[in-house]
Amino acid sequence: MSIEVNGKNIDWIENETVKELLKRVKYTFPLVVVKINNELVPRNKFNEKIVPDNSKIAVIHMISGG
């Protein structure tokens, strides 16, 4: 009953949305790219997409500069 977020194992919570997960792991950046098991979660789905158990989540934060 755990998930992996950016390489760290944390508890899985039933029915937790991506938005709730980001809040729980204290990712407060407004702009992040989220992939669950290598599949992109569009930003407008953060509110509804439920994080499955045992999933591997990548939260990618793009910082200005280039």
Partner: peptide
């Protein structure tokens, strides 16, 4: 950051078979 994020999302979504090399924190 905004345009970088949009770009990464769009490429991953619309060109799922093309490798993407991005950079953050320069």
């Amino acid at each position: 950051a905004e345009i970088k994020t949009c770009f990464v999302e769009e490429i991953l979504e619309k060109l799922p078979n093309t490798p993407l090399v991005a950079a953050t924190g320069v």
